[in-house]
């Protein structure tokens, strides 16, 4: 009799199915309409790759896409490095002075409204007299995304069995080697997932990039955003579909990487 309480009910299934449909349907519709031959976004004129063609001939869009991909790659790499170091400090550093400030600085950007982060970084760059463009956006994205990397890697580190690294040290390993040969191999999937999350977040950001970029160096989301404000354009559907495809590839690689190393699925969880 007790089983009935924990059994899945029809209500459970319905809410799950409706929720997933709600999450996916708009994206599916967007992708389908990107292959629409008609100039009118709302009229179906048959299948065509016309808008993809248009995008690959749009120099300004391509330049923005290139800018986004390079900012994403550089900032995700920096963020992964810094975020992993921060995670090690938090997960293995025990108590140290300034720890509360450190974790506060790392956790609050996860929820901090982007207008605040963007404005404050811009004012710093102006005060430092830094030329705004590729590097200022990259630094801004590194600052935001390293916090996500920290959370992902830290949660993996705290769930590890520490007796392995302690055993290595009892057998004569120094801490650095114990970390490199025992701990690091176990957190690689989390580090890979962290890099991908950082890359995707950078590829997605409009607000912080708008504040920190300079004239003439727009990222892809900034371009998309200014087009979207003017209304729906079929070319934008095509670009969005390409971005979704890129992200899908990244997700598949990430989940494959974590499967390969036999890690638990939770290491890929964003929060």
């Amino acid at each position: 009799m007790a089983r009935t309480v924990t059994r899945i009910t029809r209500f459970n299934m319905t809410s799950l199915a409706l929720g997933l449909a709600f999450l996916y349907l708009p994206i599916v519709i967007l992708v389908i309409y990107s292959f629409n031959a008609s100039r009118l976004v709302t009229v179906w004129g048959g299948w065509s790759l016309r808008w993809y063609h248009e995008f690959f001939n749009d120099a300004a869009m391509l330049e923005a896409a290139w800018m986004s991909l390079s900012v994403g790659t550089v900032s995700a790499t920096l963020a992964t490095l810094l975020g992993t170091l921060a995670a090690i400090g938090l997960a293995r550093g025990e108590r140290f002075r300034g720890r509360a400030l450190f974790s506060g600085m790392l956790y609050s950007p996860l929820v901090m409204p982007e207008v605040i982060s963007g404005l404050s970084l811009l004012l710093l760059f102006v005060a430092l007299n830094a030329e705004r463009g590729f590097w200022t956006v990259t630094i801004a994205h590194t600052t935001l995304t390293m916090c996500f990397v920290t959370v992902v890697v830290q949660s993996r580190l705290t769930s590890l069995d520490r007796s392995l690294e302690e055993a290595a040290m009892d057998l004569g390993c120094d801490p650095v080697r114990a970390f490199l040969f025992v701990t690091l191999p176990q957190i690689v999937p989390a580090i890979v997932a962290g890099w991908m999350l950082a890359f995707i977040l950078s590829l997605d950001d409009v607000v912080i990039a708008s504040f920190t970029t300079g004239p003439g160096s727009a990222t892809l989301p900034i371009r998309i955003y200014s087009e979207v404000r003017l209304g729906v354009k079929p070319e934008i559907n095509a670009i969005c579909t390409l971005v979704i495809a890129l992200i899908a590839v990244i997700i598949v690689v990430a989940s494959f990487a974590s499967k390969l190393s036999g890690a638990r699925g939770e290491s890929a969880a964003p929060l």
Binding site: L23, L30, D204, P221, C240, I247
Partner: peptide, 12 residues
């Protein structure tokens, strides 16, 4: 969907 671009989802 969380990993998919936020701007794209609004555009959708």
């Amino acid at each position: 969907p969380f990993w998919t671009s936020f701007l794209i989802r609004i555009y959708a």
